[in-house]
Nucleic acid binder design. Structure first.
Lengths: 188, 188
DNA sequence: CATCTCGCTCAACACCCGTTGACTCAACGA
DNA sequence: TCGTTGAGTCAACGGGTGTTGAGCGAGATG
């Protein structure tokens, strides 16, 4: 009723958007292998051939669905660092972008998603390590990154009930000392 | 030369073992979907049909490959708890059993592996929560579990260089305060 | 030695996937 | 108004997958 005879350019933009959204959702939900072109097309109410015509490849469709993760700003002091990380966690708890979920869902089984995840994590490690003093800054940064990765995986992808039912602020509050323990000098 | 005319029963046992080992390795390396029956068979130098004859299903082959994860003993005090967890981590760093790797590799994309992982993590959470005082014992236990999960994933599956190149004891030493922070009362 | 048993292979089936080329038909521009 | 363009569909191909049933041939059994 509302979408009556749209101009061609606009119409194309919209269906391409519908396809991309459907792809993001499906990739995020079941991963690369199980997300078939046919299923994406059906979800977008479109012929499978049109998906190919717009994105060329399943690989490139996946690339387009995963691309454009938000670029977070860097943190200065280790104190801000932890808060910034937990802020990221908060965002993740609410509604982590579907593209990121799609990448994480497939990072263990799809080669390209794996390298994409490694690169994203490496960037995070770089950013963190610059703010951590000491010899083993990179190792500490990597541990902080993997800690957040594990919590996110357990929460968003595996949907562990304990994390699912907890308030994000509570998780952040419990996690803060654990992360802070990795910023300072070794006290063990 | 050494394996000359073996008895039938022994011969069967050996080839079945070869198939299962090949399946564990392949599942652990590329995950459920990409590990084809044909590839398992070729790796075990056997006809694909024989794999079906021995294990019936790809699903059941996977189940057999994942089954029999070692049953760790419980810990008593929170102090022992952390050490026990880090001991687990040490084992993982050395040579985590291929069956566990196979389960972890597919836990985000294969439904049954997902529920298996959830159950294994739930058992760990139960064990941990019993040793932690306070109201939010289960949430703390879940966080400790997911922390270890993240580090293991980053190390064994994603193979992040910082973790790959670090000595297991060093990782354990850096991780100890972070885990201990979750056993005690809230100090944030 | 004759028969049976069973580990193992071969060839094929049915299915689903990604991908393609020809086609339809409504929006566009002169 | 009439070709032209391009969004969208249809039907099909080639390839890889899990799975199956018939069959072979060497070890067990009497």
């Amino acid at each position: 009723m509302s979408e009556r005879v749209l101009p061609r350019a606009e119409r194309r933009r919209r269906t391409e958007g519908r396809i991309l959204d459907a792809a993001k959702a499906l990739f995020a939900e079941v991963g690369y292998e199980r997300a078939t072109i046919r299923a994406v097309a059906k979800s977008a109410e479109v012929d499978p051939a049109l998906v190919m015509q717009y994105f060329g490849n399943k690989q490139e469709l996946f690339r387009a669905a995963v691309r454009a993760t938000p670029a977070p700003e860097a943190a200065a002091t280790p104190e801000e660092l932890v808060e910034h990380l937990l802020g990221t966690l908060d965002v993740k708890m609410g509604e982590l972008p579907q593209g990121s979920l799609a990448m994480m869902r497939s990072m263990l089984t799809h080669p390209e998603a794996g390298t994409a995840a490694r690169e994203a994590l490496a960037r995070q490690v770089d950013r963190l390590a610059a703010s951590i003093p000491g010899e083993d800054a990179r190792l500490r940064a990597a541990l902080m990154t993997t800690i957040l990765l594990g919590v996110t995986v357990g929460h968003q992808l595996l949907e562990l009930p304990e994390l699912r039912d907890a308030l994000p602020e509570r998780i952040a509050r419990l996690l803060r000392p654990s992360l802070r323990a990795l910023t300072g000098p070794d006290v063990s």
